[in-house]
């Protein structure tokens, strides 16, 4: 099975966020970056499918120079090669533009399966994979926890709300958006990290793929959300706040 996994590089989870001067995005200069969480699960699913059925895992990431490190990380975990779509300011692309970019990069590969994460941790659009399927004319299923290869194609487990699930059968080629938690993530081994250095990463530009950003919605400004609820903040040493809170739980909340 030939599998393409779309991997986005996002700000490290606990990174302090500063809004830029234009108020349109965050200061990227001093941020740490990491692989998007659900994409790590998509990669894991792809690697396990390859281990079972053979084939190739190609990772695909769109963004500036910095995304190279996340592609290398995926290669170190066992992906076979990478495609880096060069584009500045990926946050200024809307979901349709980004999906066009990824779809054009995927088209030439003719994979059996395309995996994306369910949702990016920064923009959180939760759309890119579904649109990629639409643009490539492929069937899709979203919120997938588990993928099984069958004679007819695939049988996948889809998460529904509130602890419900559903199975879906679909033919290949197909696009799946992967939810976190279906697998246990692997770490890169030293050997893997060494090997990754020799693996191929092909670079293409948006222009070479024939895609312009042409956004149909614009992110006008970003802000720190305004607090609506008046929260009583307890301050002092850990011992003091613990004592104050216990008083509250006793006399105001009446649970002790």
């Amino acid at each position: 099975m030939k599998i393409v996994v779309a991997i986005k590089q996002v700000p490290e989870r606990d990174a302090p966020l500063r809004i830029d001067a234009a108020g349109k995005w965050i200061e990227e200069a001093d941020l740490q970056w990491a692989m998007n969480e659900s994409d790590a699960y998509a990669l894991e699913e792809a690697l396990q499918l390859k281990e079972k059925h053979g084939g190739e895992v190609v990772v695909l990431s769109a963004g500036p120079e910095r995304v190279g490190s996340t592609i290398r990380e995926a290669l170190a975990k066992g992906a076979d090669r990478g495609i880096h779509v060069d584009c500045d300011n990926p946050a200024q692309w809307d979901a349709l533009g980004m999906a066009r970019l990824l779809a054009e990069a995927i088209r030439g590969e003719s994979p059996d399966l395309v995996l994306t994460g369910l949702q990016s941790d920064d923009l959180g659009l939760g759309q890119t994979g579904v649109i990629v399927a639409e643009l490539l004319g492929l069937p899709h299923a979203s919120l997938i926890l588990h993928v099984e290869k069958t004679d007819a194609g695939l049988k996948v487990k889809r998460e529904l709300e509130e602890g419900w699930f559903q199975e879906i059968e679909l033919p290949v080629p197909a696009v799946l958006t992967i939810q976190s938690g279906g697998n246990k993530l692997r770490y890169a081994t030293l050997m893997g990290i060494k090997r990754a250095k020799t693996k191929e990463v092909r670079r293409v530009t948006a222009a070479e793929l024939g895609v312009a950003s042409n956004a149909v919605v614009a992110l006008e400004r970003i802000a720190v959300p305004q607090k609506q609820k008046s929260t009583q903040m307890l301050t002092g040493s850990p011992k003091d706040v613990a004592a104050t809170l216990v008083e509250k739980l006793k006399f105001e909340v009446r649970v002790l």
Partner: peptide, 20 residues
């Protein structure tokens, strides 16, 4: 809508001509 898992919010404005 929320960005960064709720740590920031973003205001979006449609610029296209089709249905929003």
């Amino acid at each position: 809508r929320q960005l960064m898992q709720g740590r920031l919010s973003g205001t979006y404005c449609p610029t296209g001509s089709g249905p929003c």
